[in-house]
């Protein structure tokens, strides 16, 4: 059982799923851009394929491409999966782009139960919905919070349940714009 080289991982996936693109990453990991529709199948393949056997979902996170210097300019939300194989000691990064308007990515909690909490967090902070997740609720912010704070177009609230955020007479130079009460 030895680690499979990054290119070999990519080749194995590409042979099965031609729609997947291999990208270059500086961190020495294999880096695959997966189409939204293929995600669950790719995840299942990576977990169950004997030579790959990615048995751990190390992290599932996201970032907002709005105002990001990408070509072409995009306002998608990228969901990132960092996988690790305890058996073979190799790693891979998956990325899925979800359009901002209809922000949905299929859940991988069927493959890795660890995704249950990660997906709740990404839903809470980025507003990505994961169809198939058994209980997609907010996890960090209060249940009645409005908006998804880590999106770049998020408007900071003035108050929460009528409790003002800033103290009386408090003002900061260059602080983000605020407005509205949440909920």
């Amino acid at each position: 059982m030895s680690a499979v080289a990054n290119d070999a991982i990519a080749t194995a996936v590409l042979a099965q799923f031609p729609a997947v693109q291999q990208k270059h990453a500086d961190n020495g990991r294999a880096f695959l851009l997966v189409p939204k529709g293929d995600l669950v199948a790719v995840a299942h393949f990576l977990r169950t394929q004997k030579s790959l056997r990615f048995d751990a979902l190390m992290d599932l996170t996201a970032y907002d491409l709005l105002k990001y210097p990408s070509t072409p300019p995009s306002d998608d939300i990228a969901v990132v999966y960092l996988l690790f194989s305890y058996q073979h000691r190799h790693k891979v990064t998956l990325k899925v782009l979800a359009p901002r308007a209809e922000c949905e990515v299929a859940t991988v909690s069927g493959e890795w139960p660890a995704a249950l909490y990660f997906e709740r967090e990404v839903f809470d902070l980025f507003g990505v919905r994961f169809p198939g997740h058994p209980s997609l609720r907010r996890i960090m912010t209060p249940d009645d919070w409005q908006g998804h704070p880590l999106r770049k177009d998020y408007l900071y609230p003035d108050s929460y349940h009528g409790v003002a955020h800033l103290r009386d007479g408090q003002h900061f130079e260059g602080s983000p714009p605020r407005g509205g009460d949440t909920p």
């Binding site: 704070p149 998020y154 409790v163 955020h165 800033l166 103290r167 408090q170 900061f172 602080s175």
Partner: peptide, 20 residues
Amino acid sequence: NSGGPFSKWSYSVLNGIDKY
């Protein structure tokens, strides 16, 4: 006391527990 280092750039930190 007042939210401290989180008072400017945070959306979720309460600025002072004396509000509660």
